[in-house]
C-alpha cells in the first residue's frame, strides 16, 4: 500500500463515518425483514453477502414470499439497481487506476452513501492511488457496519413473536427511500404511475402488472421532465 493510498483511505474513512452510522437502522430492519420472510439465519446472511444491496433485498422479499416466478424477481432486482449503471459510469474514470480485481471489488462495494459523499473529491484529485484508497476504505468500512448490523437484526428477530408483524418494517423501509425522491415532480409522477398501475393491473397473469407498472412509471417520469423543460423554455 502506497503512502498516498493510505492518506486517501484515512480521508475517505473520516468523511464517510456519519454515512456509515446511518446504515445501522437500515441493516437492522433488513435483517429483521429477511427473518420475517421465513429465512433461516444462514439463508438471511447468505442473501446479505451475495446481494449486499438493501433496495434489491427489500424489493424482492415480498416477491419471494408469494412465490413469484424467478424472472419477475430477476427483472425487479435489475430495475431497482439500474441507478448503479449511472453511478458506475461516473466512477469509471476516477477508479481506472485499479487492477481488474480491485475494480470488481469497487463494483461489489458500490453504495449510494459512499458514492454521494465521495464523488466530488474522486473527480477532482489527480492521484489514482489516493482516489482508490479514498473510495475503498470507506466502502469496506460501510460493508463491515452493514453486515454486522444485519446479523444483529437477524439474531434479534428470532426473539420477537411473529404476531408483531415485523415484516411490515420492510414496507416502511421502502417508503423511507421513496419520500425524499418524491420531492422532485417528475419523480413523484413516476412513483404515482408505478404504484397506482401496479394495484390496478394486479389481475394480469404472471404478475406482469408489476412490470408494466414499472415501465409506465419510468416513461411517465421521463415525459413529465420533458414537459417541464418545454414549459420553462417558453
Amino acid at each position: 500500500m502506497s503512502p498516498s493510498f493510505k492518506a486517501g483511505a484515512r480521508e475517505g474513512f473520516r468523511v464517510c463515518l456519519p454515512v456509515s452510522v446511518g446504515l445501522v437502522p437500515w441493516a437492522l430492519v433488513t435483517g429483521l425483514a429477511m427473518v420475517s420472510a421465513g429465512f433461516t439465519p444462514v439463508q438471511a446472511m447468505g442473501m446479505s453477502f451475495i446481494v449486499f444491496g438493501a433496495t434489491a433485498q427489500l424489493g424482492t422479499l415480498p416477491l419471494i414470499v408469494i412465490g413469484a416466478p424467478w424472472w419477475l424477481i430477476l427483472a425487479t432486482a435489475l430495475v431497482v439497481n439500474l441507478r448503479f449503471l449511472i453511478f458506475s459510469a461516473a466512477l469509471a474514470g476516477p477508479l481506472a487506476g485499479g487492477t481488474l480485481l480491485q475494480r470488481w471489488l469497487c463494483g461489489y462495494l458500490l453504495t449510494d452513501g459512499v458514492f454521494a459523499t465521495c464523488l466530488e473529491r474522486l473527480r477532482s484529485d489527480a492521484d489514482p492511488a489516493w482516489r482508490l484508497g479514498y473510495y475503498l476504505a470507506p466502502s469496506l468500512w460501510c460493508a463491515l457496519v452493514w453486515q454486522s448490523s444485519t446479523l444483529t437484526g437477524v439474531l434479534a428477530a428470532g426473539a420477537i413473536p411473529r404476531g408483531w408483524s415485523l415484516e411490515f418494517m420492510a414496507s416502511i423501509a421502502l417508503l423511507v427511500l421513496l419520500v425524499p425522491m418524491a420531492r422532485v415532480r417528475p419523480m413523484l409522477v413516476a412513483m404515482l404511475t408505478g404504484g397506482v398501475l401496479s394495484v390496478l393491473l394486479r389481475g394480469l397473469p404472471l404478475r406482469l402488472g408489476v412490470m408494466v407498472a414499472i415501465v409506465a412509471g419510468i416513461a411517465a417520469g421521463f415525459a413529465t421532465e420533458h414537459l417541464q423543460k418545454k414549459a420553462e423554455a417558453r
Binding site: 425487479t76 414496507s171 413516476a190 408505478g194 404504484g195 397506482v196 401496479s198 414499472i214
Partner: peptide, 22 residues
Amino acid sequence: QKALRYAPAAALAAIVVPDVVL
C-alpha cells in the same frame, strides 16, 4: 441516463403500494 433515474422510484412504488393498499 435520464430515463434510468426514474427506474428505482417507479419500481419501489410498484412494489410497496400494493403491499400497503391491498
